[in-house]
Design a protein around this nucleic acid. Structure first.
Lengths: 258, 258
DNA sequence: GCTGCAGTTATCATATAATGATACCAAGCA
DNA sequence: TGCTTGGTATCATTATATGATAACTGCAGC
């Protein structure tokens, strides 16, 4: 109806149901019917039926007094199924644990997802902001050391297109928004084999990343360390963390070839 | 149609779409159309349409050569939204990180979900089986130290009903299946304030748990430590781990009161 | 205590959109 | 080549989602 294009192989009712699920995010943690209707731009009645269905199916919890809906535990169970379907995490996990124990700092596994990077495993070792301690977060690839590490492994024209077209987001006052500068950084990564960025996501953070390579040595993911500038400087990171990081990434890579 | 009961507030098409999502689990990590049809007991045509819709909406990845579907990154993003909607994890995370750093062993956050327990945060410190290192896993509450720790905080009649009715699953040859014995263990927990079990989920594992209490001091979750029997005995766990564990659980509890 | 408002829940006639049967195609195998 | 299995496409039919509207509930202001 409002959808521009729908053939007989597209079930628009299901798509609307997914819209309801996706209405929940960092800022919308619980939603009433009318709020859902506003966000999704669906009819009030439609939202009522869809939300009710999701509730009966166990996908939404409903506060009995406020009548507001919240994501249910089922959302975590879906993540659990995802983990089983993606061999990368299973292969990487033991090595990530070893790495985090060895260096005593936060270790992340980041996968490329379109033009963004998604953190699929996180092993926090120090207190940090909430968003950095839970899996599932996505950020623009160009903004992160992980994204740069992966981009550096792509064929030249793909890489250049990405640097030109992929979105950026200004997370801090010092986030790099200059694409030429990012191109330079990635050129560096190609030479050195690792990416290092500062103050991109939060101030006072250094992130080092190294690509995990799949078949034909294209990067499919990255191992990343997030370190506070208060206790570490770049030189010490390069001497004490980087070797282990490269080691871990290289150890994970071969297990991915079929 | 096949559904026993459906009023006008229930959108069965959406429910069928969710069936497709839930067809994926530990053992079904990628599924073809026909397999999906078999598992969900839906018409071949229906599965074709629903899976295609989920694919177009970014909820399912499709292998271009095998034509098989797999959970997409979106499943992790849903988990991310869940985390924001549940303040428990945000409150607990810093204390869980401190705890895992202090004792150097795996720390989990477990929430009660019906008659099961779901691990919503995991901080693995040693190599372990894959299922124990990723969030979203659910296990019968009666089988776990976390579940027992939470049950011990419930009013007597609820507790007794749970011990009598809730399901059990024999994960190892030494999993406790005797409900009287479980009742005794929980009685212990009420006295001591913590639960300790051995060889329940995997052989060679000791699990210690302590309830996190919400308003009216009913347990809503538990902090749990999973330790290998090869390096620790029960006495040492009680003297070196338990105090910190109790501490962490008690520190998290007050932040939950409104 | 009444009145009005905002939001949720329930009802129902209508036609849109999901349905499922069937036909078509491609790949793998004997 | 012919057969089987599984994926893709088409289409008439009507079951099912739709959205307008009405009934209900709780709350705030006066």
């Amino acid at each position: 109806m409002a959808e521009p294009k729908q053939n007989t192989l597209f079930v628009s009712t299901l798509a609307k149901g997914l819209q309801i699920l996706r209405a929940f995010d960092e800022t919308h943690t619980e939603l009433s019917l009318t709020e859902l209707a506003k966000i999704t731009a669906l009819e009030k009645s439609a939202v009522q039926r869809l939300a009710n269905t999701l509730h009966l199916e166990g996908m939404l919890d409903k506060d009995p007094t406020t009548r507001r809906y919240r994501p249910s535990h089922a959302w975590l169970e879906l993540a659990y199924s995802y983990y089983w379907s993606n061999p990368l995490v299973a292969h990487a996990m033991p090595k990530l644990i070893d790495l985090s124990q060895r260096i005593g700092e936060t270790v992340n596994l980041a996968e490329l997802s379109g033009s963004r990077v998604i953190y699929s495993a996180r092993l926090p070792c120090t207190r940090t902001i909430f968003a950095a301690s839970i899996p599932g977060r996505t950020v623009p690839a160009l903004n992160t050391s992980s994204g740069q590490a992966i981009l550096a492994t792509l064929p030249r024209h793909e890489r250049e297109a990405a640097i030109r077209d992929w979105p950026l987001h200004e997370y801090t006052s010092r986030t790099t928004l200059d694409r030429a500068e990012i191109a330079d950084q990635i050129e560096q990564v190609i030479q050195t084999g690792y990416a290092i960025t500062q103050n991109q996501m939060i101030l006072g953070e250094i992130a080092v990343a190294c690509a995990i390579r799949g078949p034909s040595s294209i990067g499919v993911a990255a191992v990343q360390c997030s370190i506070s500038t208060h206790h570490w400087d770049e030189a010490r990171i390069k001497s004490e963390i980087l070797p282990w990081l490269l080691d871990a990434a290289n150890a994970i890579s071969p297990t991915l070839r079929p």
